[in-house]
Every structure is written in C-alpha cells, then in structure tokens.
Write a protein that binds this DNA or RNA. Structure first.
Lengths: 356, 356
DNA sequence: TCGAGTATTGCACACGTGTGCAATTTGCCT
DNA sequence: AGGCAAATTGCACACGTGTGCAATACTCGA
C-alpha cells in the first residue's frame, strides 16, 4: 500500500504557525538581511521542527533555475565510466547541482525519449560521458540550447565543449617507454578506425617511432575495435609478420586483455617473450596475468574538470572549448626488455636508448 | 559565453498565437476530450512548430507528482552495478519516470546532502543499488516517506522492499556443481562477515556438503572481505590446511580473481590442480586466466524487477516485500575434476557422484 | 515629545500548468 | 424559427516560492 505522502508542509504552514506572512518566512529561510535576526532565527527553528523541506519545483518555477545537470551515458557497462561519473558528481554536489541520468543503449527511439526528459526537466547543462556517442544523439542535445561538455569526444560546434585525455601524449609515453626498455620492433593494435582517440594514438605511435629513426612497418599496425577479440586477432596476425614485433602497444586495456590471452595461447611468455602495454587503466588492469602495464587516463580528474567547466559556462564565463589532460604511465608487469637474441630494426639504437 | 536560454515558450504563448485561452491549449496538448478535435489538432501542430516543451516543474507543482525516482548508489566503481542500473532505467523510462542519481562514497556528510537533494526534488520513490549501504543512510531515506526498494539488501521495516538474487540457491548450485565434478574437499573463501549474502552463501555451502555426508572442516572456511586480496590470503591459508582442498568456492568474482593469482603464484594449475568457482559473473570473469566459472546473478532482471516493484507500489498495489531471483551457473574453464590421486574425504562418494 | 530615517513586515503579483465551473457556442429536433 | 441539450471555451483559482514596492514599526537625535 502506498501513501501519497501527506502533503509536505510549505512555507505558508510555517507562516501561519509563526504568525507572519509567507514572504517573511521565505526571506528568513533564504537568509535575507531584510528580516529581523530574532524572528529569522525563530522561523528557522520552527521550520526545522516542522520538518520543512523546500520544494525544488516551485522554486525553480520562479527563479527559472533548476540546478539540474543532465548526465548522458550511452552505455553504463563501460568499466571506464565509474571514476568519471564520480568526479562529475562530486563537483556537482559541491556546487548544489543535481544529476539526471540519461542512458540510451544506442536505441534511437530511447535516445529521443531521454533527451525529451532532459528538456522537460529544464536541465541547465549536459555532460556526455561515453566512449562513443550516437550520431543522432548530439543534434538533439544541441537543440536543448544549453551548454554541453563532452568527455573524450570532440565536435566543432558552438556551445559544445570537451574534456579529453591527451591520447597523443599517452601514445608517445607508451612507445617511448617500450623503446627505453630496448624495444625497436613495436606493433600497434588499433581501436575503432573512426575514433578520434584511435587516430591520435596511432599518430603518437608513428611519430615516436619516426623520431627514433625506426622505419614504419605496415605489418605492425593491425586493425581492431577496442574489444578483447581484437587483441586476439591482432596477436595472431602479428605473429605471422615477416619480422616479429617484440612489443605491442594496444589501443586500450580491453584489447590488451585479448592480446595477453592470445599470447599465452601461442605459448609466449609475457613479458619475457613479448611486452604488452595497454591504455586506460581500467580497474581490471591490475588483476590480469601478468598485471598490465598501461597508460592511465586521469578519469576522476576528467570528470571533475568537465563539471567545473560546465559550472563556469553556466556562470557566463568564457572558457577554452577543448581541454586535454595528460595521461601517465602505470608500470606493472607486462613489459620488460626484449628477448636476448632479438634483432633490432635499427641496430645503432641498442647503444643509445634513452628517450624523453 | 552562456545564454540564459531565451525563455522557453509556454502554453500561454501558444494560446495567444492560436487565439484561444491557455486552458484550451493545456487540454488540447493533454488530449482531453473537452476540446474540439479540429482545434485540438490545430493547437498540437502549432505547438510542435513553435518547439514547445512542457515544463516539468510547473506541471509537478500542480499535480503534486514529479515522476522522479531516486537512484542511490553508494559506489559506482562496483563493476557489478552497470547491468542493474540498465534494467532500472529501462523500466523507468518506459513508464515515464526519470532517474535522479545520488552517489555517496560512504561519506556521511555527502550522504546527507544527497538525501536532502532527493527530498527537495520530491522523488516519488527510491531504489538503492549497492553492495552495501551505509548504516546511517537508510534512516534518512526512510524519513522521505516514500517507498524504497533495496537491491541485494534486506531490512525489515515498513515501506522498505527488496529484490535480491538467491544467494543460498546460488551457493548450493556452486557446491553441487563441484561435487558433480567429483570434488569432496571443497573450501569456501568468505566475504564480509556481516553481509547477509555472505551468511547465506556460507549456509548454502555447509548444507550442501552436509547433505552429501561430507563432514565440515573448519580449516576449509577462511574469512575474507570480497576483494582480491582476500582471495590471495585465502589460498595461502588453504594450502597450509592439513588436508588440502581440491576446489574453492569464492564469495565473489573479485575474491576468485585474487585466488586465481595466488594459485598461480603457488605453482598450481587451474583447474588441473585446483578448481575455483566465483559468484556474480562480472564482466571480467570471462577474461581471467583461465576464464572463470561462476554463479551469475541475474543483474539486469534484478534492476527491472526492482523498478517494476516500485511502480506497482506507486500505484498503490500491495506487493510482497522481499523478492528473490534465482542465480544460474556459467561454466567456463576454471573448474574440472579433482586431480587423479587426490583422496576424497568420504571415499564412497567417488562411486555415486550425481547430485541435484 | 516629535520627526526623520531606518528596519521590518505584508501585499500582491509572477512563474507555467491543470481543472472545476460558469459562460458561450453549436447542433439538432420539432 | 425557436428551444433545448450537448459540445466547446474561458474565467479564475490553485500549486509553493521569490521579490518589488508600499505600509508599518522601530530607533535615535534634538
């Protein structure tokens, strides 16, 4: 049996009991200097005793401010999102904003419904946290006419801002690290071809190799989709290459997990026979066998930054539209020096192997 | 630069343009039979053309219904929650409800703030999805005076309902499965001692052994906390037992992951030397080495069921307060028959080893 | 004690939507 | 054409809160 919760008490109820007008109560509770401090205190006490809870709907109706932020997540089952959301929520709460959840597992109809819900509740801004956002989704969001901050996405449009980790820098970090360990035969198992992050990581990979004078070998770049099976296929393909790589840089940790499995299946020891490095530092990277060395995205900070950015936008500040946060290396146990007898692509590199 | 989004148009704007009163517009848009079908159609067209979006705050102010459900999650970084939330959200959206997110990483002050936010926005009901809920939290939620559905938690109190997976049945399933493989020396690495789920799994474990006439061995039950380190400690402890177990039932998958690692570190092959079974079927269970056999909780269904339950409560229906959903076995590769020469606890069991 | 100035309070309206009830229009029948 | 019922519309108020402005109460100095 449910109860329509016996009408919450309002400022009018308090006013009646206190023998003042509702305006005075309103002012007292909001801390206005326009009320006698003594009566204000009395009213506040009374309100607390009566269990008064302000009605957000009524307030937002008159102020035209809702203090609601829409949090759009295409798929929650991305192990990557938890920390981001935590950062977002923390800043939002501190600033007195509430979060409205809008998922949409790539179902266009549901996306539309979700956006309508956001519109009806008059969200003041939107944060989109997802590895990939439906193409249709964004135009709908734009139509809301509120600022939008994308996380790990970028789109050139007015009122669309973004916070991303620096994929290029992360890739440079990964490849440099491998080179410092002595590797010169380094492969890349790519992510979704269209993903901006994939393109940036690929470029970082290529430039770092080039900077060290290592000629690019097309056989060392294999396509993927960011999921474990891509890692498995990738390793199989790479093992057939004329010159086998001694290290593999994977688009992300999920790919790396597949790679680890395939390497093991092929009888290779990691890292003795093959080094594998991932990207993301998802929760599970610490528990693979061996624990995965990876490039960590600053997830929590990205969440915080995105929300802070939105807050500044809501305050009318001018803000740089696209922010990038640096990634950092997390050394675990899946990378080591190349196997003894392996032939470097460029022999002289064996001598001077320090890199930035 | 932000814009206070140029006052949304209201039914009054439409009314003016259509040459009718705002009441008529309201009725037309809500599909009331009290308007001339032709004018109704005309108004709807006009509204669409003008980009009208109803104001949820204004509506809820007069109807006293908000169509908002509070979704309380103690910590989002639980890989377990994603599917649950997906189920919840799907049903909520279908029924025209919105989800309000309230996290609280066990910080009492933040919990309080979160609950206040829920109260101010007048949520009509609350779903609590979390492995463990702060002790202080629940009383605050109860004070909201709206129905509450807990997921994988139980509390005897009016207006507190719950949906849980059947931990007892799951444990029976796990242990029976191991016994059918031929194991009789089966250990349990426990979860948080106070957790109801842990107690139920422990009882399921004990009863199943007892039903098969296997005498309990206290050395085979080791304490834990549901995290990987518990699995590591647990295995270490178990390997010192006078009679070594041939199979280990872990409180959850995270524990099993630690157990896998420790077993490997001790030079044991899984499943040839030791079988390990988990509980939960988190995303990563499929990617451990070897892939983890486990008891799957019906996460998505639990989410759907919880939300459906809440909807029925909101409609004033009477509903059984505590629901349990069955778990099922997911066979992967971490369990096998016991090693050849291992001595069963109760020799006759080797002969007739079929169990329910 | 009076008056000016200040502190405090209340009135009345606004926000956007829904709805009971009275007013008006329409349709139909004779 | 006249009359009546039914269909349609508009008026006015309500929901809970915030606020400009006028009204009232207080304070202080002369």
């Amino acid at each position: 049996m449910s109860r329509r919760p016996a009408r919450r008490i309002s400022i009018k109820d308090i006013a009646r009991k206190a023998g003042v007008s509702h305006s005075t109560v309103s002012r007292a509770l909001r801390g206005s200097p326009l009320v006698n401090p003594r009566t204000a205190e009395r009213i506040r006490r009374l309100a607390a005793r009566m269990g008064y809870v302000p009605n957000a709907a009524a307030r937002s109706l008159v102020t035209t401010r809702t203090s609601i932020i829409g949090l759009v997540i295409t798929t929650l089952s991305d192990p990557f999102l938890a920390e981001i959301v935590r950062g977002v929520e923390e800043v939002a709460l501190e600033a007195g904003y509430r979060l409205f959840l809008a998922t949409s597992n790539a179902d266009p109809e549901r996306e539309l419904a979700a956006v309508r819900a956001l519109a009806e509740s008059r969200v003041e801004g939107v944060i989109v946290a997802s590895s990939r956002v439906g193409e249709l989704y964004l135009p709908h969001l734009e139509a809301l006419g509120v600022p939008i901050v994308l996380i790990n996405q970028q789109r050139e449009a007015p009122f669309i801002y973004s916070v991303a980790s620096d994929s290029y820098q992360g890739a440079v970090l990964a490849v440099s690290y491998l080179m410092n360990l002595g590797h010169t035969r380094i492969a890349y198992i790519a992510g979704p071809p269209m993903a901006r992050s994939n393109r940036l990581r690929l470029i970082g990979y290529q430039k770092t190799l080039a900077a060290a004078g290592i000629p690019p070998d097309p056989a060392w770049i294999v396509e993927g989709n960011g999921r474990p099976e891509a890692g498995e296929w990738g390793i199989q393909r790479l093992l057939e290459a004329p010159l086998r790589p001694t290290a593999v840089f994977c688009y992300n940790d999920m790919t790396a997990i597949g790679a680890l499995r395939a390497a093991r299946a092929a009888g290779l020891r990691v890292p003795e026979d093959l080094s594998i490095i991932g990207f993301d530092d998802i929760l599970f990277a610490a528990y693979t066998e061996p624990p995965l060395t990876t490039i960590a995205q600053p997830k929590y900070e990205m969440g915080r930054t995105a929300m802070s950015m939105l807050l500044r936008l809501l305050q009318g500040e001018r803000v740089p539209p696209h922010l990038q946060l640096p990634c950092r290396l997390v050394e675990r146990a899946s990378c080591g020096p190349p196997p003894e007898g392996s032939i470097p692509v460029v022999p002289h590199l064996l001598a001077e192997r320090r890199l930035p």
